[in-house]
């Protein structure tokens, strides 16, 4: 599952995102899909086309009672470092366990 601490330096962005979201949101389900290839020609990603665009689906009890904007902000806040280091856009589906029906 998670890479050990010693390998974190070479972890992919996807793996780092997974780690951050999983631990902070106590996610009961977490899908992270790298869709950077769909944006390969995108002006903003010319230089570094790897791991720039992701789709994230996350189910977390911590979203309970939070508006969509707040949920997305929670995710964005956890990924600030990534957003500042080349992560360009993420598409977020953020649900509570109740909403996801699980």
């Amino acid at each position: 599952m998670m890479g050990s601490r010693g390998t974190s330096a070479v972890l992919s962005r996807a793996a780092r995102m997974r780690q951050k979201l999983q631990s902070s949101l106590e996610a009961s389900a977490l899908d992270i899909e790298d869709v950077s290839y769909q944006h390969a020609g995108h002006a903003a990603v010319k230089d570094n086309a790897n791991e720039t665009h992701f789709n994230i689906k996350v189910i977390s009890p911590k979203f309970e009672g939070q508006s969509l904007v707040k949920r997305h902000r929670m995710v964005y806040d956890l990924l600030t470092d990534e957003l500042n280091s080349g992560l360009h856009a993420i598409s977020i589906v953020a649900k509570t366990p109740t909403e996801s029906g699980s």
Partner: peptide, 16 residues
Amino acid sequence: NWPTFPQVFVGGELVG
């Protein structure tokens, strides 16, 4: 307090 675009505001509030 939102890192990506587009951003839609309604009545001065960010909707998302």
